[in-house]
Amino acid sequence: MNQVLIETVTGDISRGKNLVLRLTTADRLKQDNIDIVKTMADKGYRVIVITTNQPAEVLKKNYEKSGIDIAKLFFIDAITSYAIGTTPAAEQNVRFISNPSNLTDLGIAITGALNESEDKDPCILFDSISTMLIYLPSASISKFIHYISNRLRLIDTPGVFLAVGKGLDPMMISNLSTFMDDIILPDVV
């Protein structure tokens, strides 16, 4: 586990810096995701994992391997239906979105998940902003992240947003930084 990253994230959240952008490297993205989810779940948060990168099925296996109790998690999976071409069978704790570019449904699903988890101390992990660039222009992504971050700020809920730092242009990072309370750079390992 990346202790420095975990201490930085938990330190930020305990100081009220609820919205954190973690810029990582492609080879560390998966591990950073696991480390953050494990830490937040261990701290008693109900982690809402929004994935546009890996199917929820794959993430669940990764989490189980790392000893995370997946019953404490809720998944908003924007990639599986798109990848297999049909809507998968309904699963507990998973909400499938037809397409990662369907930001309306994604926004509704996030709001719904936050409302349902209101009394369960929710937090959000967004994996990842960089993958969304495959499906959407950077301006739309920035607007969407702005919307989500405002939503989280209003209900005082922590959110960690993952992105591969090398893949984002400086202007986009600069835009995103205005919505976030802290940015954790890739060299924090």
């Binding site: 492609a26 080879d27 998966k30 990168n53 199917p55 099925e57 794959v58 296996k61 960089s130 993958t131 660039l133 495959i134 222009p137 950077s138 591969v164 090398k166 893949g167 984002l168 242009d169 986009m172």
Partner: peptide
């Protein structure tokens, strides 16, 4: 943003899959 970086993502995902197949055999997913 919309070409170079996505290609890198696909490349990294395939490389990771290859590594996993090499080490553990083909995964169920």
């Amino acid at each position: 943003n919309r070409l170079r970086h996505p290609i890198e993502i696909v490349h990294d995902n395939l490389r990771e899959l290859e590594k996993q197949v090499e080490q553990e055999g083909p995964p169920g997913d």
